[in-house]
Design a protein around this nucleic acid. Sequence first.
DNA 1: CGCGAGCTTGACGTTGTTCAACTAGAGTGG
DNA 2: CCACTCTAGTTGAACAACGTCAAGCTCGCG
Lengths: 233, 233
Amino acid sequence: MISLNKPSLDKCDLCLFKQMVRQYVSEEDFQLLYHSTIQLRYKKGENILKQGSQFSHIIFLSKGIVKFNYENEFGKNFILTIVNSPKLIGGINVFNDATNMFSIVAIEESVACLIDINVLKNLALKNSLLTMKLIEYASSTFKDSILNFISLAHKQVNGRVAELIIYLSEKVYKEKDFAMSLTRKELAEFAGCSQENIIHTLKRFHKEGVINTDGKRIKILDFKRLLEISKVG
Amino acid sequence: MISLNKPSLDKCDLCLFKQMVRQYVSEEDFQLLYHSTIQLRYKKGENILKQGSQFSHIIFLSKGIVKFNYENEFGKNFILTIVNSPKLIGGINVFNDATNMFSIVAIEESVACLIDINVLKNLALKNSLLTMKLIEYASSTFKDSILNFISLAHKQVNGRVAELIIYLSEKVYKEKDFAMSLTRKELAEFAGCSQENIIHTLKRFHKEGVINTDGKRIKILDFKRLLEISKVG
DNA sequence: CGCGAGCTTGACGTTGTTCAACTAGAGTGG
DNA sequence: CCACTCTAGTTGAACAACGTCAAGCTCGCG
């Protein structure tokens, strides 16, 4: 965590989350929330939220890309999902005050607003509609992650890598031709296989003319074929 | 679905969910909820809730055991988790009115109360605390399922089967020696491997004296060893 | 220039799937 | 009461997928 700025109201206007909250609460309550929010900047690789820590803030990712990382009892990492801004993250267990199920780590320079959970809870107590909207907002991100994870779980590496490329292209980088900020090791943690297997598979796709790889740059050449591979598994 | 009875208030007293709701709403509102609830009995193998269908009821499983089943685009099934009564199930996307992510299927004769989602929503709108409690209640079941699934996802079959046996023993049947109502095929869908692999693995465990298998009956002989296998993966 | 991190390669053994054949028990109908 | 069939379970062999290992490569940086 590098800088700690009180966000200007200008910046907050760009924040979809605050826009949403604003619809349902009074200006007074909004100001309360605004003053209990801190905006932080994260460098690549920094933890925004640590697995096992106490849940204290709702996080709105206003800029950057993050990974949801789960570490098992043997120190092995799995990437549950990767999401792009702007998005409300880490908000699923808002009303379930437990510890965080996973870490959230910036994989590119990111900016996040940390909204105090207790202040938000107090607002929500006064306002059911807000509560519902919060849940709706938070659970959709969560649901996507899970579906993504389920989908990955029982496919062979070919299918998983194909799906992963499509996911990165469509949901994260929003380009058919993108330069990832993920290492091969991270790709492996995402696909749930060994690093070497990722490399072999990418190379195979490259040779077959499905994609073009050049270091961290991936270009999708034959989307239809890629989709087919991802489906057949 | 066999019988369709209006539950007696007596029976409702046993329903943990209704007990919970009762704490937060007026008797009048509770009656409203009560009259919009139907209680159904399901035979083994019957769908309580179908993947892809519209979300219309919150389900309280008052008796029986169910599986959460996910079917992919090729008709292949995966069991996400198996839960025992009493438990609130299928309630995670209450405020996210989408379609159901998975099917819920009775694997033993079960009884469930279907609570009308719109009536509940109206109550929740008047009562934030209820909303929060609902979320809390529903998301804890969901969270467990997910953790369970993540844990299974990246282990080898040995570890997955060991974990599965422990799970069934501790969370579902609550005995070290239990008679499952699951077929080998279902075990395979739970562990995410082939039926034959399940059989081979169970046999190996049997030979090594870790468990005793006799058809659908499983007896854990060496729990410590089983735990070890499940951890190492 | 040398070092280290990330990446690549191919060989090899292990794990897991598929397939085909077989067994056992339950239900059915002549 | 026996033959037939259907389903669940079991077995082992062949084959494919995958992880591991060990070695080498490349690029950026001190």
